[in-house]
Design a protein around this nucleic acid. Structure first.
Lengths: 207, 207
DNA sequence: CATATTTGATACCGATTGGTAACAATAAAC
DNA sequence: GTTTATTGTTACCAATCGGTATCAAATATG
């Protein structure tokens, strides 16, 4: 258990690190759709031979799963961070609306929701991970709403669970619209309308 | 220009009418997804040879387009009918919620929205038709909202166009959830919440 | 230097995709 | 009954899919 078990890279070194391959694959999946990017295409644009890719990830399922993991820690973590800042209802919702409707990183939608909407086309490992992340997101939304309810900011008759599901799906819808090319302003308007059920925005309709 | 130009069916008669083939293909596409049902599969379950199918529809694009047309006149017309009944806001929205969340025909979602969400995988003819039907739906929602606004039932600051888009997308979301296996009660709860921006339901929070 | 190890290149596999070319069988029209 | 039109059957096509076997090239370890 000493430092001897550090895997020393013997043999021919990697011309391209696994992380770079993952990033290239992630961006390709993200821009279009995992179902529309073949393993062959990933190898080509990543400059990696197919046998090498299969030696590293085992299968297409292994690759998409690794990509999803990387996407979760590099992108989805930002959404979770917004929820866990402990800010007020409106400030948080506005931040979510900003991110979903106008963040330049999400110009082609959200890779996670693309995977979720095409879940049946994914391998078992990736599909399982999609379900797990979906549950985590739901828990995150629920925890946020719980905090707002404790703070007396959301006294409505809607249950916590229903509110979390609603919030989650509205964000998902915004991302899917983004992927479809809807303009940020249009998405912002619709998402603002949808989330107005959690309390009216500061401006507009002061009545 | 007399009755002589009625096309008399000469030659070997069709063992299976085109309409039956269309219905079988429609149900197959509807149950799973157009992108997941190959032409080979359609031929097999419809009991039609592949050359015959290609003689009738020309291409896969022609088939999906014909299926979409049939779906529009057999299913989507029901949604349009709800909007054109001239009933009040709440009655109409409740009818829409009922249809989207619980109608047994929509148990596997809505074929139109499945096609729309996978639009890039369709042929040019079908894609064009999808856009047309989407525009028709939007116009239908807008006309309905216009009527409600004229009747003083919807005085909010939301523009007609934004309201129509919002309504359309919320219905679409409900259908997609249905296709994902979400329970009708859950969909009804979320859709009711989303459409509460058009006026609160009769029960609950009378304030 | 010699050896072990890992890479990339190439070529292949069986399966499936959308789409066709021939051709025999069949039935309506004449 | 002959002709004509249309069907189904069979077999095929090139392309692409995910996945692998083989082997030479390259490099870190010894």
């Amino acid at each position: 258990m000493s430092d001897t078990d550090q895997k020393k890279a013997r043999g021919r070194p990697r011309k391209m690190s696994n992380d770079v391959v993952l990033d290239v694959a992630m961006n390709a999946y993200w821009r279009s759709d995992p179902a529309d990017v073949s393993v062959n295409a990933v190898c080509q644009i990543a400059g990696v031979s197919k046998p090498s890719l299969y030696r590293t990830f085992g299968s297409e399922d292994g690759l998409t799963r690794a990509v999803l993991d990387r996407y979760a820690e590099k992108v989805l973590s930002d959404v979770f961070a917004i929820l866990q800042r402990g800010r007020g209802m409106r400030v948080t919702l506005d931040a979510l609306i900003d991110f979903a409707s106008a963040d330049p990183r999400m110009e082609t939608g959200c890779l996670f929701y693309k995977m979720r909407s095409g879940k049946h086309r994914l391998g078992p490992e990736t599909r399982k991970r999609v379900d797990e992340i979906g549950a985590e997101a739901l828990a995150g939304y629920a925890a946020f709403l719980q905090g707002r309810r404790d703070a007396g900011e959301w006294p409505g008759p809607v249950s916590l669970d229903a509110g979390a599901k609603y919030l989650s799906e509205q964000i998902a819808l915004a991302f899917m619209q983004r992927a479809s090319g809807v303009e940020p302003d249009g998405i912002r308007e619709m998402l603002g309308l949808a989330l107005s059920v959690f309390g009216e925005p500061s401006v507009d309709t002061p009545n």
